[in-house]
Design a binder for these strands. Sequence first.
DNA 1: GACACATATCCGCCTACACGGATATATTGA
DNA 2: TCAATATATCCGTGTAGGCGGATATGTGTC
Lengths: 115, 115
Amino acid sequence: MKEMAKLFKALSEDVRLRILGLLCQGELCVCDLMAVLDLPQSTISRHLSYLTNAGWLAGERRGVWMYYRLIDDGGDLQQDLMAVLIKHLAKLPAVARDYARLTQYLKTKNPSACG
Amino acid sequence: MKEMAKLFKALSEDVRLRILGLLCQGELCVCDLMAVLDLPQSTISRHLSYLTNAGWLAGERRGVWMYYRLIDDGGDLQQDLMAVLIKHLAKLPAVARDYARLTQYLKTKNPSACG
DNA sequence: GACACATATCCGCCTACACGGATATATTGA
DNA sequence: TCAATATATCCGTGTAGGCGGATATGTGTC
């Protein structure tokens, strides 16, 4: 019960939904998210911790960079919710704008950086 | 976006999940919920307001009593989420206990009361 | 109108957490 | 070891919202 509420609570915030939306496209590191969402590093990092702690993300360190990706082996409930998220997030205008900015960003990004 | 976060936020609290679980069985009035959940009236009423405002419930006055039921004509996202809730809430031990108490309560309840 | 009852709202108190700048930590490379 | 960079955490500030007793409001009955 607490666990279920915790899953939902993690989804109850705009920035976190935008992060999940972006990660539907594949893993990203903190600096990618900072660039695309245009938010301070501490804000991004805090939300990533929250999502990880709630069981939505997994982080992996590669050198100096931390890559985050969606967890695909959660419980039944979580998998059903993930399907709902994938289906509906992309429809949101704010998320569509983020996708566009991500595409643009990946094009111009220095290849020697994290990606 | 805000709307989506709002839907999820309403689901991020134990008491509200228990209320939704009970209402899956059909409409109930505030006094029913007080009896089954064993919580103060102000607490129940506050959560019902929250759920109604978030678009999860509809309330209807019948005489002195307010009956609440799940909304079945929400948007696409909401309907998908409702299906997930119906599927998973009943599995939770806390909700199963509430069902048992509801059954017991309905048996012993004075028929001249709200029901 | 006066009362009884169901429900909604108010109130003070308290915790969670959002924000973002400042600081601490971790890693790599010179 | 030191500097540079990426990330995590700390901090003070502000707001949302949980709690439940007290009070206000709405409704039916006499």
